[in-house]
Design a protein around this nucleic acid. Structure first.
Lengths: 155, 155
DNA sequence: ATTCCTGCAAACCTTTTGCAGAGGT
DNA sequence: ACCTCTGCAAAAGGTTTGCAGGAAT
């Protein structure tokens, strides 16, 4: 099995070819930074990371590029409660939801077939067919030490 | 059983008394407009409505007042995907989530004990205690005529 | 009288857009 | 050569804040 970033490069390359878009150093760097960051990065996070390797890159480029990645299907846009858009890599079309610690900001991922099924049933009962959903659970760590630890090293 | 707006007046009055806040004509009007609108109103909706009775009221007042209502526990802030904050009345501390038609924007409410229970279990499995959650299902109406109908009369 | 509120305008923050020049095909 | 991208700065959209005058207690 390939590394996620390679699969994304392939997918993105295909999308760009189909749409007559161009391959640039910035897009390369942003894709790499995005995948190496792991997930749930904000535009600021990404810009900071990319500027280490390419000073001079501006916000506009990162915004435009992440929008492109989302359209090409290699990134998901997320809107949590901190008012900034965050992105996470799409891996093999898997789906998951989020569980967020309100003390330290740690984001866990979960997936539950029972909940998925109930959602479909509920939608159907109202005459709708599910397109997508947003499900975030907010809670506090019952293990404060690990929580505090993460908080200590910033977001 | 009292009308929801009366219960809200009571609750808000108590909150204001406890915090040494003042009773004003604007706050009265906004509360009334808010409850008569039914639910999921944006700041713009509310401002428009209140200005019919009190021209001259500004955005700042509505923003500040809705924030107050949320703190007093008579309104819930919601952030759907249209980029505007919406508010809905709190009725008897009931809880519900949302099902939204992406064609016409109609918002349905639902509540499911099975999902609630799964959420608690999932959080626990990750060592968290649930504080609150956000759960929105987006779908398309399988009955396009009713859907289109609602779309026709705006949002 | 005192303290809180209001309306206005300016500030803020995140995101988008217009433009001229740089860069990919 | 052509057309897309980039970086900058300005604009936009939603929300917050500072201030001086006005209202509630």
């Amino acid at each position: 099995m390939k590394a996620p970033v390679e699969e994304a490069q392939r997918k993105l390359g295909e999308y760009m070819r189909e749409h007559g878009l161009k391959h640039t150093r910035q897009r390369d760097q942003i894709l790499e930074g995005f995948f190496s960051a792991g997930g749930h990065v904000s535009i600021d996070d990404l810009l900071g990371q990319v500027q280490e390797r390419m000073p001079g890159v501006g916000y506009a480029t990162v915004y435009r590029t992440m929008k492109l990645f989302a359209e090409a299907g290699v990134a998901h846009e997320r809107h949590f409660k901190d008012g900034q858009t965050r992105y996470e890599p799409v891996i093999d079309d898997e789906h998951h939801d989020h569980l967020i610690c309100t003390v330290c900001g740690t984001i866990f991922e979960f997936e539950d077939p029972v909940i998925e099924q109930r959602q479909a049933d509920i939608a159907l009962a109202h005459g709708l067919r599910v397109e997508h959903h947003r499900h975030e659970i907010y809670g506090v760590c019952s293990a404060p030490e690990s929580c505090a630890h993460r908080a200590a090293r910033g977001r």
